[in-house]
């Protein structure tokens, strides 16, 4: 099962939980942008950014260990950076034993930098989600004038993720309860290909259901007067104190970026 409860904020009620969601959204996006702009190999700045994330986690009373552990989920996606190690320029550190591929030092530095930067970016997003309810975040997006269609798509994603996950769980339960094994035979009587085919059909059925649902949902929207124009209640004014609190981490990160660009 997908660990959907990760999408809910923690129970604590800290200054970070109470901060205006628009400020939090902008701060998180700025931190991710600044992290992305950091030059390769600025390990001191990475450590400082990491410390900033951990400080935020502690203020928000979210376990730093948990934040780091969840951020590791991004590792498979940064795997692509591994190729840099073998395609980078000289100097070479060594050669890989069997294949004889050269290990490039600049390539290695770049690869490790990308992994660090992606971990820090994901940690910023995790902290945002851990302190802000998703519905509040949607509200923040539309009051920041992000186009209504985009916000609607993200909102549908959130609303129907749960339903689709439930539907997937029901399908696989239905499959499992009919996947009996003859007495005395090994754990699965059927071949891998047979099982792969069943799974393929299940995914197909899930897609068809999602497609049909999208039509019914659209009909429900039309029934209540939807014309494609975004409608929302006007957002209240931002409180200057919240803007100030949001500026602090962004300025720290920005000065780290400036320093590492100079050095």
């Amino acid at each position: 099962m997908i660990q959907l409860q990760h999408l809910n904020p923690t129970e604590a009620d800290t200054a970070l939980h109470r901060l205006d969601p628009r400020v939090k959204l902008i701060v998180a996006l700025s931190l991710i942008l600044i992290t992305g702009l950091m030059p390769s190999g600025a390990f001191g700045a990475y450590i400082a950014l990491f410390a900033l994330m951990m400080a935020e986690a502690i203020i928000a009373r979210v376990s730093p260990v948990l934040v780091v552990a969840r951020s590791l989920a991004v590792l498979p996606f940064s795997l692509a950076a591994v190729t840099l190690i073998f395609t980078g320029p000289e100097p070479y550190l060594a050669a890989l034993p069997v294949t004889g591929w050269p290990i490039s030092e600049p390539g290695l530095v770049q690869c490790v930098s990308i992994v660090f930067k992606s971990l820090i970016s994901v940690q910023a997003a995790i902290l945002l989600i851990a302190t802000t309810h998703f519905t509040t975040l949607l509200w923040a997006m539309s009051s920041l004038r992000i186009p209504g269609v985009l916000v609607a798509i993200i909102s549908f994603m959130y609303r129907y993720l749960f339903l689709l996950a439930d539907e997937a769980a029901r399908l696989s339960r239905a499959r499992d309860s009919r996947s009996a094994v003859p007495a005395g035979s090994p754990v699965t009587a059927r071949s891998l290909i047979f099982r792969a085919r069943t799974t393929g059909r299940m995914i197909g059925s899930l897609l068809v259901r999602a497609f049909e649902r999208s039509e019914r949902v659209y009909n429900a929207m039309l029934s209540r007067g939807y014309t494609g124009a975004p409608m929302q209640i006007d957002p209240p004014q931002l409180c200057p104190r919240d803007v100030l609190i949001g500026l602090i981490p962004v300025l720290i990160a920005a000065s780290l970026l400036a320093i590492s660009l100079i050095i």
Binding site: T135, R213, A220, R224, G225, M231
Partner: peptide, 30 residues
Amino acid sequence: RAWVGLVFQNPDDQLFNPRVFDDVAFGPLH
């Protein structure tokens, strides 16, 4: 569409917003 209130069989089709308030406000806002 303002006169006819159509309630679908499956409420998961009718309630397409994450939060209850936004779904009930959807019609009046439009």
